[in-house]
Design a protein around this nucleic acid. Sequence first.
DNA 1: CTGAAAGCGCTAACAG
DNA 2: CTGTTAGCGCTTTCAG
Lengths: 342, 342
Amino acid sequence: MSDTGLDMAKVTLQSVADEVGVSRMTVSNAFSRPDQLSKDLRERILATAERLGYSGPDPAARALARGRTGSVGLLLNGPLSEAFEDDVSAEFVAAVADELTRRGLALTVLTPPQDDGFLPARDVAVDGALVYTCDPASAGVAWLGRRKLPVVAVDQDLGTDVTTIGVDDLSGARAGAQHLLDLGHRRIGVLALTEQFALDPPNRDRLLGWRETLAGAGVEPVVARTTLLPRSAALEAATELLESSDVTAVLCFDDVFARAVIAAAAALGRSVPDDLSVVGYDDSRVATAGVPALTTVRQDVTTKGHLAAGALADLLGGRAASSHTLPTELVVRDSTGPVPTP
Amino acid sequence: MSDTGLDMAKVTLQSVADEVGVSRMTVSNAFSRPDQLSKDLRERILATAERLGYSGPDPAARALARGRTGSVGLLLNGPLSEAFEDDVSAEFVAAVADELTRRGLALTVLTPPQDDGFLPARDVAVDGALVYTCDPASAGVAWLGRRKLPVVAVDQDLGTDVTTIGVDDLSGARAGAQHLLDLGHRRIGVLALTEQFALDPPNRDRLLGWRETLAGAGVEPVVARTTLLPRSAALEAATELLESSDVTAVLCFDDVFARAVIAAAAALGRSVPDDLSVVGYDDSRVATAGVPALTTVRQDVTTKGHLAAGALADLLGGRAASSHTLPTELVVRDSTGPVPTP
DNA sequence: CTGAAAGCGCTAACAG
DNA sequence: CTGTTAGCGCTTTCAG
């Protein structure tokens, strides 16, 4: 509807240059380096471009010529549902995107390949990538390496030469476990992710932290494992844990699992924190959204996202980027209490 | 660590060709059109490429030569936090990304510009875009049009010539309102989005549907308005609504608002559904995650995402794409009941 | 099945 | 301030 006519021949920098009667380079400068030409000429060029329906330098061509695409990848492994439908991941992604935009970069989601020939981590043009919730041995990570793209790892161990943004889950987990010990609990269960995540830093470190601290008091936890999806899995695992053991407290991989434990307890006629204490992790929205409010270990996901995006942007800008380990903090609320006296 | 040596001169199709002793084109074919050369030669080429550390055709160069980047944009307006931290949006994005991957496309988030020169909708290389939760008059939408990119609108009115995937919110809202009327309610409140979203199809149609149906029974609703963020806003608005009126039921823009109304009611000593009936919208996770389970209007967000991504992929593939209006369904649970008898 | 020619649309670098 | 010279790395014809 808004075509100037039938000149559907693609409008390029050259067409505009010809029309104005200057060289292609001058038009390029008019768009990309305003200070390189007289204000007057620039306006004349811009006006002509507008009239011709030229929408600015073609991003793909510019990417090739400049060697930068202006967008960075976010490499994810599991199904996207896991990444986007989980509050914590979603908050992370939002923070990343926010910070990237601020730095003049867009975010491209590098999904795990689903069929034959298309492998995002290999085939999509990006300047660098954030590696999040990925199996470090995955094909995606390998491709990024082959492409020699700048990479920032988040909650991942990709090697000491890779800038890494992580969380001090070891301390966080220890604090949670110590809290239960302090309350007198000695029969303690933990609800972690399945063995498949044995090497995933968050799962690994939380488990390790719990175990270390409990071991210090001579306590061997009852370990139950489950998955993020389907959501019903956690409830089942929690029910099974409560039915098959006599734990008085449970340490959970995240707040969602903690809610599942509370729900399972309720279904079994046990109330939290009177009959059972439950500790979550993350201090996500669900921690305070329900009753009782969760005792949990807080991590600052938004800062994690900002730092990760910022580090990658620094790398792309040729600046140095340093790794960070963010602190955690135990937040005591209403889901934990003294060990029940029988 | 894995460099073959000091040959840091960039490895290109040409280097590989030279090394193998064939033309550049043959190497290109080895990667992009396996059936165009002998299996034997192909393997020799691939092996040499591997040895040289060649990671396949450069995506940016390929994008320019082919005229396709292999990634599509998702244009969002508000802060990303709104898009990613809301269950419904997150589910939509996950569904979109899943379907796109299946079709051999990646997803690039086109965020609203935050500063000076960088305008994702104008500057990022994509083959097409999905327009979601955007002001139709926004600069982003205009740029996509200028670039003549194929576009699919989701829950938006971008004109009849734009493929649109939407939801029959009018019917959904009517069903919710009728449900309350059937239960005998006559003093009814509605909690919608602020005037800023007056033209946003979901907000507009839900409001319209409620009004129409209530008007049919001579009921004029008490209208309260609030925003998605900060989350506390809805609670305040709900409290205000309940305190300043004597409604016996509230129709809400979404399930999150419904939960806020229930929380506000509880704080005022009113229980749901005995003293107050509440109808949500979306049938999202929070609808069934809390107590009482919400009576709500269900929409299939995942299908919406699949359809939108599929339609855009079709457009990019030169196929026709048709618009769809997805149905809604009233789901009656425990947050609504007969009008209380004083 | 393989190769040569001709760009895709733009931008660095430097010359005028 | 403006224009020239060279590509960025790949793919599309179309010949051989």
